[in-house]
Design a protein around this nucleic acid. Structure first.
Lengths: 137, 137
DNA sequence: CAGAATCCCATACGATACTG
DNA sequence: CAGTATCGTATGGGATTCTG
């Protein structure tokens, strides 16, 4: 039971990498983890899996994202070298976002996770009960 | 380029599952995604990969987590059927947390992502510059 | 169309104190 | 030890307005 996961992941456990804890607090891993696992970061990255997309396209596909958060997310991912921004000097302006090679690499390990969530969400959470299991405080 | 990811993930693209967008807003997938990708949810799940652990152990390993957030995270993950809570009726109290079979399944797709982040964090973020790439607003 | 800037609120989160 | 309860702050994040 305990070691099955480490075998399944193909190599030794993740804790050989970080013996003291999961990830040391306040290290670069935590920062990147927060960027990448952020609510909108995940959706943007996975959306771009489908190929280069424009701003308005991303807004539609990552349903519910505000302009502010989309801009902030894209700037963060771009600064991290995961997303490429291609602005065409035309009028009206046209900007295409796409995954960098590094971003594609990340997406390769992200997509299986998303697919798992998609498969198991209804069984775990329920058909349509967003309030049911998010009772905080 | 565009389709390489879908090939790499072993099956068709994730968008056959959700043609309209990444995930429809306000559906169960989003809820589970938020639970699972939450800052502490990730660390707790991955920490439990190493086997059953006690409350105080989890607090130490998920460095920086507050008691409040650890409790909240564990309750959410338990309600989702990802984490099992085993309270022994002894004094002083002893509680062991472990992954359920479903949780182990999730961890199997989560660990590769964490390993990728661990490998690439320094190259992407920098050795120790948490402020450098998180300039928001 | 593709954003930037501003305002403002909800809540995520941490610190502290208390309990079984 | 393993939590709960309460409080205060920081920040995430939406709505709106403005610009090239």
């Amino acid at each position: 039971m305990t070691e099955s996961l480490q075998v399944a992941s193909g190599e030794a456990g993740i804790f050989e990498q970080f013996p003291g804890g999961v990830f040391p607090a306040a290290c670069s891993s935590r920062v990147l983890l927060d960027h990448v696992m952020s609510k909108w970061g995940v959706l943007v990255l996975v959306s771009l899996t489908d190929g280069p997309q424009r701003w308005s396209e991303l807004r539609r596909r990552a349903q519910g994202v505000s302009e502010k958060m989309l801009a902030q997310t894209l700037r963060t991912l771009e600064a991290d070298g995961l997303v490429d921004r291609d602005q065409k000097p035309v009028m009206p302006p046209r900007v295409d976002y796409s995954l960098t090679p590094l971003g594609e690499e990340l997406a390769e390990v992200m997509v299986p996770l998303l697919r798992w969530v998609g498969r198991n969400a209804e069984a775990v959470i329920g058909p349509s009960d967003p309030a049911g299991s998010s009772r905080s405080s």
